[in-house]
Design a protein around this nucleic acid. Structure first.
Lengths: 348, 348
DNA sequence: GCAAGCACCGTGAGCGCTCACAGTCGTTAA
DNA sequence: TTAACGACTGTGAGCGCTCACGGTGCTTGC
């Protein structure tokens, strides 16, 4: 036993094979009695394969439990089968925002159904942004879904420069195709609804001014009110959080105690506004009616439940991946602005 | 011009090169005046490289803007540089649960700092679960982070079987290492606190019974109450949602109107419970004191703000990736149970 | 009867990298 | 002086796949 021979040089391949490695395309080919090429053809849904070979290959495929080595495939096809979902947020917004979570979920699902996988990347810090760019340039990803809520995000321009297919969620008309909800139209819808309830001192808690949601929804509010808009009835929140909503509402209440309606640019913000209102002794929807935006899960959970504008999140997600996949496939695809919808509950 | 020669066979490589492709290791080597091997060595932080070569390679590296082709590297090293974050949830829980979102965020960040990327996978449907398994077996991923809230999740066992390094978030003592908060201890902490406020009819809204959070936190509640526990004061919520919390609280209120305190197994649930309480005309914390669990963002946003148990989410995330990376590196690493902390606000 | 066309199939090359091995050269010990 | 050693470097092979090409055998049209 002690004079055991050292492993024969030829046996190295076998040894490596033994150490936990799946069957290769060649194994499948051998078993099916065809060649590598034929197996590859059926793997890629190709034609020019006889029914007999096809059956044999399928049989061998299941028998061996073969699964393609994506690295090897990517090496030659230069496609990775992954999409980067990039969250361009200085603050940890994912933390609080259910809209983002829903979007992420839908995109993961859609992409999965298409056979690609989603890699999540943060792009808050400069280091992270650099990582995203490197990742993209390295060809690790076939395309990127940039979720950016800040207008003029430099990452969009840089991504555009790399030439890798990218689509932005949120308005980004300058460099890249985008998919967004019709924020402005939605805001008009809500404002009009508030006006139609016979309210005349209609305030708004707008989002941060440097976000499309902030700017566009405020613009819609102004559109609808026309020259009846009173600047003192407008307040920008500092962020899309409950506490920011509360603060903004308090400010409004102090400045213009006679307000009888308020359009709040997001549901999360509206939750805060609602609390501020109730803390100040106002009844909702008696004294003040309030409308939110997003129709996120929390909107139906407040008391009273929030009347709000529904963002077509499933459509946005679908649009995002559709446009991206089209771009990747070399087809042209235009930006999309998706319609919103008024959801009436009890707060207005 | 018409007798233009057809492309010379030798020029094919050059033509392909022209079509948008990054510099290879060979290009770098040429520029640095060294060989492939030497460049590879510096790329992999290897020793046995002379200072001169090292400098030359670094220079060439930046000059060419070289970035490794991960596919080629993976093909030989059999490591992919990606970790799968698997969400084993039948329902779209990501949608509502801020805890999950925070966890995802932290893990992405931590993994990114380590140089790996996170691919997000859903495992709600059978098809999705199959995809996860295939993905893992294909070696597309170096390890998996399984976030599973249901005890006895079959996916855990299947993943364990594949042999790929996996760590579970939440208790999964049977097959795999796990990292979890000390749910039971936290529940005891809160229950004790409620008792110390001189309340004697202490109820609980527990989570769904088949989740660790549901079982463990209820166990902690029982532990602390000892033989004073009244089964009529216990109600399991049907899910971790606001509305489920409201429903459970309504049930409790009908059954035992004399309750004067309630421990609710999650903040989201507590929001619902709070609404139910207030809708029933009870004041908080006057008539009834209420304690939550998680310390998610919403806990400080309710009115009154929730007294709750803080889950050490940053520690959990760190533990998760640490244990996983250890396992991947072949080091053994044990399961961890992390301590929780009482956060007193105004609801109790 | 033969050329042309077609469907199918196998094979070589090569994607960009790492790894093991086999050098080369200068330095030190015998 | 020479052998041995160490630091450093280049090279071949090969990871598992796809793609283009060329070959086979069969059918069809003239």
């Amino acid at each position: 036993m002690s004079d055991e021979a050292p492993p024969h040089p030829k046996s190295r391949g076998a040894a490596r094979r033994a150490q936990r490695r799946g069957p290769t395309i060649e194994d499948v080919a051998d078993l099916a009695g065809v060649s590598r090429g034929t197996v590859s053809r059926v793997l890629n849904g190709a034609h020019h394969v006889s029914p007999a070979s096809l059956a044999a290959v399928h049989q061998a495929l299941t028998q061996t439990g073969y699964v393609v080595n994506q690295s090897a495939r990517s090496l030659v096809t230069r496609r990775s089968g992954t999409i980067a979902f990039v969250l361009s947020e200085p603050q940890d917004r994912l933390f609080e925002d259910p809209v983002l979570a829903t979007l992420l979920r839908s995109c993961t699902q859609l992409l999965g159904d298409h056979g690609s996988s989603l890699v999540l990347m943060l792009a808050g810090t400069p280091a992270e942004r650099a990582r995203v760019l490197t990742f993209a340039r390295a060809g690790h990803t076939d395309g990127v879904l940039l979720v950016s809520t800040h207008t003029g995000d430099p990452l969009a321009a840089q991504l555009a420069e790399t030439g890798i297919p990218t689509v932005v969620c949120g308005r980004e008309p300058r460099h890249l195709p985008f998919v967004a909800a019709d924020d402005r139209g939605g805001a008009r819808l809500m404002t009009r609804y508030l006006m139609d309830r016979d309210r005349h001192r209609i305030a708004t808690v707008a989002g941060p001014a440097d976000t499309p949601g902030g700017a566009e929804r405020l613009a819609g509010f102004r559109d609808e009110l026309g020259d009846r808009v009173d600047e003192r009835l407008i307040e920008n929140a500092s962020a899309y959080t409950i506490s920011a909503g509360r603060e903004a509402m308090d400010l409004l209440l102090n400045r213009t105690p006679d307000l009888d309606a308020v359009f709040v640019a997001s549901d999360l913000l509206a939750v805060g506004a609602l609390q501020a209102l109730q803390a100040a002794g106002r009844t909702v929807p008696g004294d003040v009616i309030i409308g939110g935006f997003d129709d996120s899960a929390i909107a139906s959970a407040t008391s009273p439940p929030l009347t709000t504008i529904r963002q077509p999140l499933p459509l946005i997600a679908a649009g995002l991946v559709e446009v991206l996949l089209d771009r990747i496939a070399g087809r042209s695809a235009d930006s999309r602005i998706l319609p919103t919808e008024l959801v009436v509950r009890e707060s207005a």
